[in-house]
């Protein structure tokens, strides 16, 4: 061995002594590795939550908006920008964390990103089915500035009785139609006398519906429904059981008066 080699080895050992360095314990590295995997898993979960919200908004865009909304406007309104940004951030964080694990670097960028995205998507579907997408959408509307939830968009779009749009929750059945509770907790008398192209209409008490028709009397809050569609959101998770469907049949209703002739039906 030559002197220079000894010198460097000596200097290194001298600095080890001086700085009182000790090899870090195995536990330290184990904990760090666990921490990295935990962060990666957490990022995949958060990515999954973001995806559940994206699915919720995509699936329910139609129920939130009135028919005939231009596609671009529809997309801009319901596009879950916040969740898309969050999903991209957390998929990236998960990728970075997995890459810093012992074997993470062996996988290509594409494989890691696709793998992370796939894991988040699977979780996202599970979360969406369990109703997390709906809850997150509602939570974000309350706590995140400039974030409108689908319920809010739906209310804002459908609550225009004078323009022929009315939304609310189906109440009890009446002789000519139903009672309807709108989003401001006002009760409406809705008549289907002119309506329903089919001979029979099935509604459930407690169901949210959107009506296309004409305002009969704003003071008395009466509305003639020419068409009806369910505004229930998909992906709300487990819901309490509802009463059996009510059947409103043509034969129960007064004869048509053709007041719906000029009203464009829903869909």
């Amino acid at each position: 061995m030559n002197n220079k080699q000894n010198t460097i080895a000596d200097k290194v050992l001298e600095r080890v002594e001086q700085l009182q360095l000790k090899p870090r314990s195995r536990q330290f590295f184990k904990l760090r590795n666990i921490g990295i995997w935990f962060l990666a898993a957490l990022s995949v979960v958060v990515g999954g939550l973001a995806i559940s919200s994206i699915i919720f908004r995509s699936v329910n865009a139609g129920a939130a908006l009135r028919p005939g909304t231009p596609p671009l406007q529809e997309a801009l309104l319901v596009m879950p920008f916040l969740w898309i940004i969050l999903m991209v951030i957390f998929v990236y964080v998960a990728y970075r964390e997995i890459r810093s694990t012992k074997r993470g670097y062996k996988y290509s960028l594409t494989a890691l990103i696709l793998g992370t995205l796939l894991a988040s998507s699977v979780l996202g579907i599970v979360f969406y089915t369990a109703g997390a997408g709906f809850m997150l959408d509602r939570f974000a509307a309350r706590h995140v500035p400039f974030h409108a939830d689908l319920e809010g968009i739906q209310r804002e779009r459908w609550q225009h009785p004078a323009d022929g749009f009315l939304a609310g929750t189906v109440g009890a059945q009446t002789e000519t139609g139903i009672r309807l509770m709108d989003s401001e907790n006002q009760e409406w008398q809705v008549t289907f006398s002119d309506t329903i192209p089919e001979k029979r209409l099935q509604l459930t008490e407690g169901e949210r519906v959107g009506l296309r028709g004409t305002l009969i009397d704003a003071q008395a809050r009466t509305f003639l429904a020419c068409d009806v569609r369910s505004l229930e959101f998909e992906g709300r998770g487990l819901q309490p059981p509802r009463p059996p469907q009510m059947r409103i049949e043509r034969k129960d209703l007064p004869p048509r008066s053709n007041r719906c002739e000029d009203v464009r039906p829903l869909n």
């Binding site: 460097i8 200097k11 290194v12 600095r15 080890v16 700085l19 360095l21 000790k22 090899p23 870090r24 314990s25 195995r26 330290f28 590295f29």
Partner: peptide
């Protein structure tokens, strides 16, 4: 020297 110190500290890794 820095490299070898790093090696020393991270031996268990």
């Amino acid at each position: 020297q820095d490299i070898f110190l790093k090696v020393y500290q991270n031996m268990n890794n």
